[in-house]
């Protein structure tokens, strides 16, 4: 357990491709929602200590808007859709016409972002399910506006029982003029990786 030494370049490539396909579909959905072009960065697949996971979005204390959902089914894991505060504000404005700072948000604003997160993570996961032919059942998503460290550590609990490192598939996206940018994080549970690889016919004989 917690042994990543059996990961070769090929396995990393496959995981990057998973991020590519999932986030690609989500970015298309987002682009349709806001009627603007969305660009995506090459997915980062990293095996990192828990402490450094939050660094990918600006550090443990950075306040972010996050839609979180738990994936159950054949390949359990955690999924996060993370926006910085300005991006969340811009996104909200572009979709609903509401122009309010995060501290003025009420039920309507929260609910709108919740739904946006729901649509985007849903398209990420359904494309992943199509691609792998695995049964993935997302939970009802939850939304939180808080410190990135506090939020992301939630997705690390299951991994904490097996090791000190997390495997994260992180895909950043941005709108042309950088008004909206954010990240999709998929953090598979330790036991999910062999299943994921097997579903794609990728040779993998190690424990994760």
């Amino acid at each position: 357990m917690g042994d990543f030494t059996k990961f070769g370049d090929f396995q990393f490539d496959v995981l990057r491709e998973i991020g590519n396909i999932g986030a690609g579909h989500a970015a298309t959905a987002l682009s349709m929602l806001i009627q603007k072009e969305i660009d995506m960065k090459v997915p980062q697949v990293k095996i990192i200590p828990f402490d450094e996971v939050a660094d990918c979005v600006g550090g443990a204390e950075t306040v972010v808007v996050t839609v979180f959902l738990r994936v159950e089914g054949d390949c359990p894991g955690n999924m996060f859709f993370i926006l910085d505060l300005d991006s969340a504000k811009h996104l909200l404005e572009q979709i609903t016409g509401i122009n309010k700072d995060v501290y003025e948000w009420e039920e309507l604003e929260i609910s709108a972002l919740h739904e946006i997160g729901n649509i985007l993570t849903g398209s990420y996961l359904s494309s992943l399910a199509d691609f792998t032919q695995l049964n993935l059942q997302p939970s009802v998503p939850a939304l939180a506006v808080d410190m990135a460290g506090a939020i992301l550590s939630y997705g690390l609990i299951a991994l904490g029982q097996a090791g000190d490192f997390a495997l994260t598939i992180d895909t950043a996206f941005f709108e042309g003029n950088d008004q909206v940018k954010g990240n999709f994080f998929l953090i598979p549970d330790p036991e999910s990786l062999p299943i994921l690889f097997r579903s794609l016919g990728v040779p993998f004989d190690g424990d994760y």
């Binding site: 939050a54 550090g59 443990a60 204390e61 808080d146 410190m147 990135a148 460290g149 506090a150 939020i151 992301l152 550590s153 939630y154 609990i157």
Partner: peptide, 10 residues
């Protein structure tokens, strides 16, 4: 001083 950041469920 001792400091730790971003305590959630921890």
């Amino acid at each position: 001083k001792l400091r730790t950041t971003g305590l959630g469920s921890c």
